[in-house]
């Protein structure tokens, strides 16, 4: 019986191994490349969504965020941005859902925590908003925006002294660079 492997096949085996490794590399880097390209596209889209948001064009902002979400699914930042757009449109329940999704992906996303508080404020749940924002402040190293949101809650509660103190604290932390 002839042996299965002889020296005659050595170059062929080497060639097969070489091409296999090459294919694996192409597959691996190709996937990584497409993921990277998707990430770049998503970042670009989120940036333009921010521009539209700043200009007050919520419909364009919304469509840019949705496109970013399909280019890079599971992006906490995209859910957060979506939440703020929905908040602006007055869709508080949908905004709350978007912030919840963002927090499922990244439980420490400070903007999403503040967004949750703002959504609760929009829904009229002042106690819930106060509790959420106070808890966010305890964890949040950049609290300017959270102080602002808490100030709004106290204004709604007609507690001018507390509102004043939160807005003032917000100004102070902004000056210190803690947005």
């Amino acid at each position: 019986m002839k042996p299965l492997y002889t020296k005659r096949y050595e170059p062929l085996v080497s060639l097969v191994i070489f091409f296999s490794v090459l294919c694996l590399c192409v597959l691996f880097y190709g996937k990584a490349y497409s993921q990277e390209a998707g990430k770049d596209k998503a970042v670009q889209l989120l940036k333009s969504a921010e521009g539209f948001y700043d200009e007050g064009d919520m419909e364009k902002a919304l469509s840019a965020v949705r496109e970013a979400m399909s280019a890079m699914p599971g992006n906490a930042g995209a859910y957060d941005r979506l939440g703020y757009i929905l908040l602006k449109k007055g869709q508080f329940d949908d905004a709350l859902n978007a912030f919840n999704e963002a927090l499922k992906i990244n439980p420490n996303l400070r903007e999403a925590k503040t967004g949750t508080g703002l959504s609760l404020l929009g829904k009229g749940d002042l106690a819930g908003a106060e509790a959420t924002l106070t808890a966010a402040l305890a964890l949040n190293p950049y609290p300017s925006m959270t102080h602002y949101a808490l100030g709004l809650v106290y204004q709604k509660m007609n507690d001018d002294a507390k509102a004043l103190s939160q807005f003032k604290e917000g100004l102070k932390t902004f000056k210190e660079g803690k947005k």
């Binding site: 602002y148 709004l152 004043l164 917000g170 100004l171």
Partner: peptide, 24 residues
């Protein structure tokens, strides 16, 4: 605030913060 007008003071601090944080 110096004149103990807390409501008005809170409104102005809020407005300043809204401008800085670019809140529309």
């Amino acid at each position: 605030e110096m004149n103990n007008m807390k409501k008005e003071a809170a409104m102005d601090y809020r407005k300043a913060l809204e401008i800085l944080l670019k809140i529309r």
